[in-house]
Design a protein around this nucleic acid. Structure first.
Length: 460
DNA sequence: TCTGGGGTCCTAGGACCC
DNA sequence: TCTGGGGTCCTAGGACCC
């Protein structure tokens, strides 16, 4: 793809003050009044402030306590009704999918549309303006009165900048070749990927506007910001952005976190909270039918400093007992005695094919105990997770060399393994409440035939 | 009562392997 | 025995986005 598209074929839609607008639509008494939606607890922050509330300085990401100080009495502070927001969001996304098969939903209130995909259409400025106007009207009509802002441009970055330029209920068309002139007077903060930290560092070099940035050499920017960030700054400052609109993006991680109303220093209380969060996490990854190998525990301390601890298992799992055991071990390695304000847990290293391994394990478990496994090649190994306090043994054919009955790892879980030829049986004693995945491997690892425990991490 | 919750991507260092 | 480069995986932290 060329560095810059030659037509304005990317459309960006942003719903105006979305959460607050839904509340005002559904509750006529709130219309014309300041409305703030977000966390309403002592440590809440603002998600969305209505335009009436913005007059008083309320903003997204501001502590709700500060918004309360700024806004007059009579301001509505609401916790949010996410099902209602999702419903209206879905109506808008369906409208966008009528425009093009390629729609990238960025969040509940924002999306990109690739106007060059699907049936060929007229991409002349006149045609694009009427397409945009029609979309704005349809969004308002079909959502019962919500408004959106639309930017149409040759790239994602310029389309997004465009949708910001005439908010609310505005349409901005940026024609190819005009990117630099639109960008030049803007603050560097308008560029995708320039946040508070990069903005402050650029400021220290006297760089305030995109025009200033465009005068800095690429080698200087790479030296200051690193390879990826430096080169991307150079290109985006010139308005060069050929990132594709991607309709289906793969989920890389899933996490749950919670800020407590007051800091918690009691490890037992934290462990209970952690278990509840793991249950929520496991239910979410179960719904999306993915399994993760890496568990990460996150802690924000009383002084707002943040720590993460992660651990990677040799296989992917969605089992709350396995994730919970990992998470508790990780949390135990963190000093919480001075009190923590936030606890989080997540999984990454997601796969869907691990599902087959899990099903294999469950099948084996539900079918029979002992379970029989065919070893796939001349030398093979089998690994099965044994929950703590369970025993297991390998029953093997004449050419099978048992490795061990149960090898306990640092989690307290057991691994059964062996190597050799032919068929092997894994027999568990005691109730198996945590059926883990069974894996068999073919390998030519000499350590295996020498009777050493295999390194499962390097198995395919 | 200052600072939510859910994500993505990048970097840097160490371990390990070839 | 010594020297060494490249690639991958893992961990921890940081910036950024909505």
């Amino acid at each position: 793809m060329p560095a810059v598209r030659r037509e304005s074929s990317v459309l960006h839609v942003d719903l105006d003050a979305f959460f607050a607008a839904v509340e005002q639509r559904d509750k006529p008494s709130l219309r014309g009044k300041p409305v703030v939606v977000g966390g309403i607890g002592p440590r809440g922050v603002v998600s969305t402030a209505s335009y009436e509330a913005r007059v008083f300085g309320a903003r997204s990401a501001m502590p709700t306590s500060e918004a309360r100080r700024r806004c007059p009495s009579g301001t509505a502070f609401l916790g949010g009704r996410f099902d209602a927001y999702r419903l209206s969001s879905g109506v808008v996304m369906d409208l966008l999918r009528e425009l093009s098969p390629i729609v990238e939903q960025v969040s509940v209130d924002e999306a990109y549309v690739d106007l060059a995909a699907g049936t060929p259409r007229d991409l002349s400025p006149e045609a694009l303006r009427s397409l945009g106007q029609e979309l704005l009207h349809r969004i308002t009509a079909e959502t019962g009165g919500l408004t959106a802002s639309v930017g149409i441009a040759p790239s994602k970055m310029m389309a997004k900048i465009g949708s910001e330029l005439n908010k609310p209920a505005g349409l901005t068309l940026i024609e190819p070749g005009t990117e630099q002139e639109v960008l030049a007077p803007m603050s560097v903060r308008a560029i995708a990927g320039v946040g508070p930290a990069t903005g402050a560092r650029l400021h220290a070099f006297g760089v305030e506007t995109v025009a200033d940035l465009a005068r800095v050499s690429e080698s200087d920017l790479v030296a200051i910001f690193g390879q990826a960030h430096g080169t991307s700054l150079v290109r985006l400052a010139r308005g060069e952005d050929d990132r594709a609109v991607e309709s289906q993006r793969e989920t890389k991680s899933v996490s749950v976190e919670e800020t407590f109303e007051t800091d918690i220093a009691d490890p037992a209380v934290l462990e209970r909270e952690l278990d509840l969060m793991v249950a929520r996490l496991a239910s979410r990854i179960g719904q999306s039918a993915v399994f993760g190998r890496t568990t990460t525990v996150k802690v924000r301390q009383h002084d707002f400093s943040q720590l993460t601890r992660s651990g990677t298992l040799p296989y992917a799992t969605g089992d709350p007992a396995v994730i919970g055991r990992q998470a508790r071990r990780l949390l135990a390695g963190i000093d919480v005695t001075s009190g923590i304000r936030l606890l989080g847990v997540g999984v990454s290293g997601l796969t869907t094919h691990a599902q087959e391994e899990l099903e294999l394990g469950e099948d084996l478990f539900s079918a029979t105990t002992p379970a029989d496994l065919e070893v796939p090649d001349s030398i093979g190994a089998v690994q099965e997770e044994a929950p703590p306090r369970h025993t297991a043994e390998l029953v093997h054919g004449p050419q099978w060399r048992p490795g061990a009955d149960v090898v306990h790892d640092e989690l307290g879980a057991g691994w059964v393994w062996g190597s050799g030829l032919g068929r092997v049986t894994v027999r568990f004693e005691g109730p198996r409440t945590v059926p883990g995945p069974v894996r068999t491997f073919a390998t030519d690892d000499p350590a295996l035939s020498a009777g050493e425990p295999p390194d499962w991490r390097h198995q395919p």
